[in-house]
Design a protein around this nucleic acid. Sequence first.
DNA 1: AAATTTACTAAACAGTGTTTATTATTTCCA
DNA 2: TGGAAATAATAAACACTGTTTAGTAAATTT
Lengths: 205, 205
Amino acid sequence: MGIAERKTKEKTELKALILAAARGLFLERGIEETSIRNIAEVIEYSPATIYLYFKDKDEILHELHSQGFQEMGSRMRELMSVSDPMERLKELGRVYLEFARENTEMYDLMFIAKAPMHFLEKMEEHNWSEGKVAFDFLLNTVEECIAAGRFAGHDPCGLSFMIWSCVHGMVALEIRDRCKGISNENPDIIFRGAFDAFIKIIDVL
Amino acid sequence: MGIAERKTKEKTELKALILAAARGLFLERGIEETSIRNIAEVIEYSPATIYLYFKDKDEILHELHSQGFQEMGSRMRELMSVSDPMERLKELGRVYLEFARENTEMYDLMFIAKAPMHFLEKMEEHNWSEGKVAFDFLLNTVEECIAAGRFAGHDPCGLSFMIWSCVHGMVALEIRDRCKGISNENPDIIFRGAFDAFIKIIDVL
DNA sequence: AAATTTACTAAACAGTGTTTATTATTTCCA
DNA sequence: TGGAAATAATAAACACTGTTTAGTAAATTT
């Protein structure tokens, strides 16, 4: 099966090439400003060729969204070495915000853009597996904190979702430009102040 | 000045008609699925006419975003009658979430969509006045709580932004479909659980 | 009544995602 | 090895999108 093997290899290679080109254009020009034709031009293929490798544009965006989760996941897994769950929880918040602010376009794709979820719906896939894996990491940490006697009276799932909402809210507001003119100070300062408040609250809970 | 008066009245009337048509289409078909041509068809004018009343599509979206803030603002002002700042803060969270979930398309326009902010940038307007008014209402309430001896050790601005992020995060995740498959339970239950956690934390702070 | 301003639109431009029909190439099998 | 079958790639078209331009008809002013 030497030929079939080479064929599938070429297939995945061109697929990867398309994704790399798409990602490059996203990072330098933004998601909505890059078209299938732009991607085709970069990789020097016709636009129609892209449709031999991906069902539609949403599938490309979903694939890149998954790449983002892989990268964020590997950063999160590094925190498994932190044994104290409270410490790990705070580090998780820090790493999450760090990833989001260093990879705004990717974060947008992962947690804000509609396209990746539209793709799931079209596939009749009702489970957002990437999101669930990440959420469960948070949930497990929160449950460990509860087992260690913290967060008395809180439902682990509800509290985890609240914590996630909190950090997501910060970056979502910043990414979509809702911090402009909120404070007279540097927008970075209000961000830091909010994260400080977050840490203080986690500590006191 | 009878004629000129009538002219300006007609002008604002057609402007309002365009906005009403746009809003109607948004609510029933979504923002990205409605085009200038769709709006023109509803009001039975040519697409080009719309450009005599609005600079571009972003201006229409910005105008509707402002309408949304007017409506949310009037709901928030009702809470001025609540004298206890802690009670008012919690009610503010409840009203915010209620508005967001009853007007998802409007909320999206106000706090998630890029278009209204793109319009501000094109106008070289660096202050998001609608957002600032709403944020200041929250900030004032938080400052009153601090004056009443609560939230010790917290910076009012940072804490306000954190509270805002928290409630925004919840609805933003839901609106952009990031709650699917997170929990086995009804997505409504996790939402309620998160809000319960929010209230508990505010109370204990 | 003629000139001018205003209100509106048909048609075009340059772009978008996507599909279809066609061509060139490669692989398979007799 | 030569002809049939399968694969890979594309040019061109379709039905859209936001927006601009040039031109027409009506209302207003002089």
